[in-house]
Design a protein around this nucleic acid. Structure first.
Length: 216
DNA sequence: CACCAGGAATGTA
DNA sequence: TACATTCATGGT
């Protein structure tokens, strides 16, 4: 199907979502780490625990006792790794001058800085770029690969063509990019899991989910 | 009980 | 470059 039609279906089904679900930009950074290979439901529990422990900024994380962070984020899984990543990443950002300082960087400088942080891979980097710092990025996650592949927008479900990514980032506005990724994640959660739930999916008819199912 | 969730780092060939 | 392994809780 055509990309424009794809967007149109998402718009009519999900509207404007005002992503990312967080109260502050710093919570976006924290949530981006916690949600790595983890359901958002579990991240919400971890975020709630952090708030109850009065740990809700990057500075709080730097100053907080390790054990309290570990305890708070336990429900989000991988808590040993994620605790170290949170502390390390928060420290690096704080010593740079906080998100306020990152906003002064060019896209290129920002990408280089974030990419150098342990625990920040491609997706996390771009999520922070757009949802915490307002840069024009199209976040490619597992859902994006799966849905673009199943709807025939890309051929390979393990690699998203850079040319297409650049084109999307060039053509869409910041607001549209913000919304598009949120819509894709919601579509993924609602209908397009590994085991697809295709009933009432707005992409039904445009989606070849069967081509991906591999039988032994 | 098996499988998966809004990944990333590390090691191997 | 292309895979495999590890990290770990909670829902279905």
């Amino acid at each position: 199907m055509k990309f424009e039609k794809f967007r149109q279906i998402l718009d009519s089904h999900y509207g404007n979502l005002h992503w990312w679900p967080a109260d502050t930009e710093e919570e976006v950074v924290i949530g981006a780490i916690l949600t790595q290979n983890t359901s958002w439901k579990n991240v919400e529990k971890a975020m709630e625990n952090l708030k109850q422990a009065h740990i809700l900024t990057l500075n709080d994380i730097v100053n907080a006792d390790r054990e309290r962070i570990r305890n708070a984020i336990r429900p989000s899984g991988f808590y040993n790794q994620k605790t170290e990543r949170l502390i390390n990443i928060s420290g690096k950002i704080v010593e740079k001058g906080g998100l306020r300082a990152l906003r002064e960087m060019t896209d290129r400088e920002l990408s280089y800085f974030l990419g150098s942080l342990k625990g920040v891979g491609k997706e996390t980097e771009e999520s922070i770029m757009i949802y915490a710092l307002g840069r024009k990025r199209f976040v490619v996650d597992k859902y994006t690969l799966r849905i673009f592949n199943r709807t025939g927008l890309i051929e390979d479900d393990t690699d998203f063509p850079k040319s297409l990514k650049n084109e999307i980032e060039r053509k869409l506005s910041l607001e549209e990019l913000n919304n598009l990724h949120g819509q894709i994640v919601n579509l993924g959660k609602d209908f397009c899991r590994t085991q697809p739930i295709c009933k009432k999916c707005p992409m039904a008819g445009e989606c070849d989910y069967e081509k991906e199912i591999t039988l032994p």
